[in-house]
Design a binder for these strands. Structure first.
Lengths: 120, 120
DNA sequence: CGCATATTCAACCATCCGGTTGACGATCGC
DNA sequence: GCGATCGTCAACCGGATGGTTGAATATGCG
């Protein structure tokens, strides 16, 4: 009976999964397309997607042969509230967010190396 | 070379560690006092504190025989920025935070059972 | 129908994680 | 100095995690 925060935070603790979320921020994607920029097997990505879905961070919908993955940002609400309570940070700073995101993408293991970080 | 976000999010993924952070939100504490409300061994709590320190979420300072633990909320900044970029949530809502915190404390494993949640 | 594509399942492996216990190093008070 | 207190270290254990490969399932296309 892990709490929501348990599953959300541990889902976010993996750089591959954060990179996947960043990709889905741009658009919904098929599983195969999510996996393409990474060097790991499709099965491994499929497992990551299950973890993200388990945490409620994405949803998956089969359309024909293809399963589409969609970001579900609302799942972050609880965790975000929890964190902000500690830090009492200033309001959302999207520029800072972009810088962090680019750092993340550049760093992610065998990362998405042909994903355009420019438009993130 | 795990990124900062890796260590911070995985530190936050454990309910015992989140409960410790919540306790330190009220005041600095000695290791023994941190451990007291939990049913786990002192050594286990010591390990949790190391994980939190590794993530930069707390600092430890020896004063005589006692090691004092202090919350370092700034370590949450990066993670908070990252998350807010996804969710684009409304500004900090401290009431919601309190509700979450109480839920967490109530739920934490063999939790702090004699910590006053009233004044959190 | 039959083949190709899309995705998951199952089994396996190495590593990490949270917990325990017992020994050890430091420091205080007498 | 000695004994008690504070905290970490080391070795160990069971279970979760992230990865692999190969088989299985489901759907679309010709």
């Amino acid at each position: 009976m892990a709490s929501d925060l348990d599953t959300v935070f541990s889902a976010l603790a993996d750089p591959t999964r954060r990179a996947i979320l960043a990709m889905l921020l741009e658009d919904d994607m098929a599983v195969t397309d999510v996996a393409e920029p990474f060097q790991t097997s499709l099965a491994a990505i499929s497992k990551h997607l299950s973890v993200l879905a388990e945490a409620g961070l994405i949803s998956r919908e089969r359309r024909g042969r293809v399963i589409w993955c969609k970001l579900e940002p609302d799942a972050l609400r609880g965790a975000s509230v929890w964190m902000q309570g500690f830090g009492q940070f200033e309001p959302v700073d999207l520029d800072a967010f972009e810088r962090f995101l680019e750092g993340e993408l550049a760093k992610s293991p065998e990362g998405p190396d042909d994903v355009e970080t420019t438009s993130v």
